[in-house]
Design a protein around this nucleic acid. Structure first.
Lengths: 129, 129
DNA sequence: TCTTGACTTTGAGCAAACTCTAAGTGATAA
DNA sequence: TTATCACTTAGAGTTTGCTCAAAGTCAAGA
């Protein structure tokens, strides 16, 4: 798969794909004889994984470390697991925080509803007139 | 309340508090005779609200708009409500995304657990030897 | 053969959200 | 009264995560 296809498939710009590879956020992608990237199954799975993790807000720095450990082989499995657990716990914390904010936003919106409904009704009445 | 107290109370640097005010993320704070900020109840409630919204990832730009509308008075109530609903919906979307990533992280960690447990056991055995 | 178009690299540029620096004021404690 | 300390402003600098530009290579079609 060429970069153009991959870019479309995962909705990441070619620049972003090259950038991710350059900084080690995904392992080096295989190339054809003329040096052009030829993404294989495994490359695609990495991209998908990284995209998912990034969408949840995991820092690039941490993910680079994960990829790096992965490339060092089996001996880093415990370390990788610890990294994932740490990130999961942070993620849980952020989700909780966001759910609290969601509650608060909902409360605020409700209050607007109670205050504003009369105004909205009035506006409707006017526009009917 | 002086900026130092407020900074400590909300765990935001004095720089950040001044920055937030400068860009209109909180309404202008009242001052004493010598021009020094003297935060009142209402100022504190704004800071707390903004801190909460920022912690959930709402963009500064959007919050500035909310504060601006608020300062324009009652006539903007409908617009403010619409803004909040929009932000809430985006927040719900992000939470969902993060929960999916959380599932995936948990799955990955479990897989590490299944693969690694034998290794961990072995390590323990060795350290006991 | 020439041109087109997709690719390559390196390095600069940009937006968001702070964070820091420099230079100055004003109240209070020794 | 002098020094200290918290405050002030304006503006520059930093970090993160892309995004763009320049200059070049290579393969395929007219």
């Amino acid at each position: 798969m060429r970069i153009a296809e991959v870019s479309e498939k995962y909705n990441l710009t070619q620049d972003t794909l090259r950038y991710y590879e350059r900084i080690g956020l995904i392992p080096p992608v295989s190339r054809n004889e003329s040096g052009i990237r030829d993404y294989n199954e495994s490359d695609c799975r990495w991209i998908e994984f990284i995209k998912c993790m990034r969408s949840a807000g995991l820092a690039i720095e941490v993910l680079i470390e994960y990829v790096d450990l992965f490339q060092q082989g089996e001996s880093t499995a415990l370390e990788r697991k610890a990294l994932l657990i740490d990130q999961r716990d942070q993620l849980i914390h952020r989700i909780k925080e966001m759910q609290e904010t969601l509650q608060r936003l909902n409360g605020k919106i409700e209050r607007y509803e109670r205050c504003i409904l009369p105004i909205e009704d009035e506006l409707k009445t006017i526009s009917v007139k």
